[in-house]
Design a protein around this nucleic acid. Sequence first.
DNA 1: GCTTTGACTCTCG
DNA 2: TCGAGAGCCAAAG
Length: 109
Amino acid sequence: MSKIPQFYQKVYHICRKVPKGKVTTYKALAEKLGSKAYRAVGRAMNKNSNGILNCKGRNMVPCHRVVGSSGHLVGFAHGLKKKAELLRKEGIKVKNNKIKDFDKVLFRF
DNA sequence: GCTTTGACTCTCG
DNA sequence: TCGAGAGCCAAAG
């Protein structure tokens, strides 16, 4: 069933823990994983983003809720613009690819 | 099995 | 304030 490494699955699991209207950072994810593989976390998304951010079934992983350490939107498979739109739909204020109330929407584990 | 890459982060200029 | 460079970890080639 698991075709993807544990590290990736762990990242997805944490992402799924982020409630709607909240966002998290790659750093927080890596820290939660017990590693500093900020890049590995992002890489995991990009590699599997194909069918993940579909948000259709239970496989929904809010990758768009994962932002940079400073609350600024970073890389997105579909484009940062799309990411900003998605976040805005969640109730998060995004301005110029940047989280407006980052401190308020930042979800802490 | 080593090298390259990547949706990152931090520090210096 | 913005730009460039170095560091870090894990997976894929």
